[in-house]
């Protein structure tokens, strides 16, 4: 059977594609920024002296990392609405994403913190740095610098995962595609276009993280270690 590709049928929808892509980027940016904060806080809590705090954070991280995102988002979105809490779909999407990003980031940042040699901290203590200074300058910054490549690729994976938000009918790129394909019956073409847009966003994010790395870690740039 011959199938006639007709990408022209999609032209009138270019604005929808664009707004979908923008929504995808928006969800990603918000959830990455908030999730990074939560992740760092959890990574610090994992090393806390309080056993209860360590355990609670550990359960959170393991629960999120070992269950699918689609189940989590259904649990949150349908669960909250079943007890009468109705939040906008985008807010629910960002909420679910933040929980997810937080757990993954926490594991990566923790690995980075573990890679800081204890003698560095002892040296900082000997120099009379305060606890906050040690955490900021001796542990956190070098740790994040070290795991920056894994962090950025994790964030790109999270961007791809926003497509799952379409399952609670969020109007991001995949959700928009679902609507367009049911209007035009040009499903294959629609998803090809959307796939290209996702690849474009992936490259955009890589470029952004590369640039951000150059700004955030000047030492690395000077050492010529690459980011």
């Amino acid at each position: 059977m011959h199938y006639q590709f007709d990408f022209g049928a999609l032209l009138p929808y270019w604005q929808s594609f664009l707004s979908g892509a923008l929504t995808t980027i928006e969800i990603t940016v918000f959830s990455v920024i908030i999730g990074l904060g939560i992740g760092i806080a959890c990574a610090i809590a994992r090393r806390s002296q309080v056993a209860v705090l360590r355990a609670v954070v550990g359960v959170y991280i393991e629960a999120v990392r070992n269950t699918p995102f689609i189940v989590q988002i259904f649990f949150i979105f349908f669960g909250l609405s079943s007890v009468g809490i109705r939040m906008p779909i985008i807010a629910a999407s960002v909420f679910a994403m933040v929980i997810n990003v937080g757990a993954y980031t926490a594991e990566i940042v923790r690995a980075g913190m573990d890679s800081i040699h204890p003698s560095q901290i002892e040296a900082a203590q000997a120099l009379g740095l305060s606890k906050f200074q040690i955490y900021r300058d001796i542990i956190m910054l070098p740790a994040i610098e070290r795991v920056y490549p894994s962090l950025s690729s994790q964030f790109i994976l999270m961007m791809l995962a926003t497509s799952i938000c379409s399952q609670i009918s969020a109007e991001e790129l995949t959700g928009v595609a679902n609507n367009i394909q049911s209007n035009t019956f040009r499903s294959l073409e629609t998803y090809f276009v959307v796939a290209l847009l996702y690849i474009a966003i992936t490259y955009l994010m890589r470029a952004a993280f590369f640039g951000l790395g150059l700004i955030a870690f000047p030492r690395r740039r000077r050492l010529g270690l690459g980011v």
């Binding site: 497509s163 294959l188 796939a195």
Partner: peptide
């Protein structure tokens, strides 16, 4: 690898699902 890792699995599923469908 760039294509597969640069697109969501969800979209890949849709392409395969509809793609195999239109080719009968």
């Amino acid at each position: 690898i760039q294509i597969v890792q640069g697109t969501p699995l969800l979209i890949q599923m849709f392409i395969l699902y509809f793609g195999l469908g239109v080719f009968g």
